[in-house]
Amino acid sequence: MILIHCPYCEEDRPEVEFTYGGEAHIARPLDPSALTDSEWEGYLYIRSNTRGLHAERWRHAHGCARFFNAVRDTVSDRFEVTYKTGEARPAKITQTGGAA
């Protein structure tokens, strides 16, 4: 059972309180109708499928109910950092944890 740090509650809580929300920092286009089919396909389906540090969305569903972002190592399943919606992905994350 992983513990996840909710950046709003500022607490480490068990993973059963959270739901996964897919890759982070993919903004919905402001005017979808202006997109070509392949651009829309890119937004809808194409994901980075990263091996290693991956920025992704989580929701503290059984807590504050807020969405936030996390950088998780998909190899070790380790959460390196979590941060609030709207904040930029921390520029540099070391493998040993924490934003630098």
Binding site: R59, A61, F67
Partner: peptide, 13 residues
């Protein structure tokens, strides 16, 4: 509810 919260919190804040 989760889907609506998602759009409200992350797209149309």
């Amino acid at each position: 509810l989760g889907m609506m919260e998602d759009y409200l919190q992350t797209e149309w804040s």
